[in-house]
Amino acid sequence: MIDVKNLHKSFGDNEVLRGIDEHIAKGEKVVVIGPSGSGKSTFLRCLNLLEKPTQGEIWFEEQNITDKKTNVDKVRQKMGMVFQHFNLFPHLTVQQNITLAPINLKLQTKQEADANALRLLERIGLADKANSYPNMLSGGQKQRIAIVRALAMNPDVMLFDEPTSALDPEMVGEVLQLMKELANEGMTMVVVTHEMGFAKEVGTRVLFMDEGVIMEQNTPLQLFENPQSTRLKEFLSKVL
């Protein structure tokens, strides 16, 4: 589904990604872990071209999306993204947040989009918040709404950029729960996170990134129980 070939990314003189080759198959739940500054967020943001790779190719559903001729907006419609800081639109109600893109991109009529939004909100138990503004909600509620906002576009893959890092501890569970449900439904997911429990439980594969490369990868069980590189051993000893 996603093919990354020799991906490099520099910010000025600072080379953040130093050659990444990776294949992500449909239905996989890939969890990316690593110390801060390792390039894991940049890697994720390259996948939907929020960051422009300086070198290398990314293929998504048989299309080279790093090609200049590719319509990036069309590609992004099929890749949902969830941010650390939710990035809900504060001037719109919860329901408008969810329906804005489908309606404006003419993918759904207003009626369809509204019905779809309410169905999604019911699913996460927040139907009564449809007409509230994001400011009135808790962090956990905001992030769950950000997730269903991305789902409203019927994406083929969901990218999560540290979705629980900005949450109060007691709200982490509800967000992870929703992500688990998504995983169980077969959604292809790429998740950058510090939640090792989630990686173990939900991940089909865990990538350990360090200094701009994927240093080690394995099934969660193998990676956590039997780390090979000293860097990974060091990292795990600090976070587990």
């Binding site: 939907n48 929020l50 907006d73 949902g80 990035n87 804005l100 906002r149 576009m153």
Partner: peptide
């Protein structure tokens, strides 16, 4: 906000 909008395909 810009990133969220762009990531939705707008």
């Amino acid at each position: 906000q810009m990133e969220a909008g762009r990531s939705l395909g707008l």
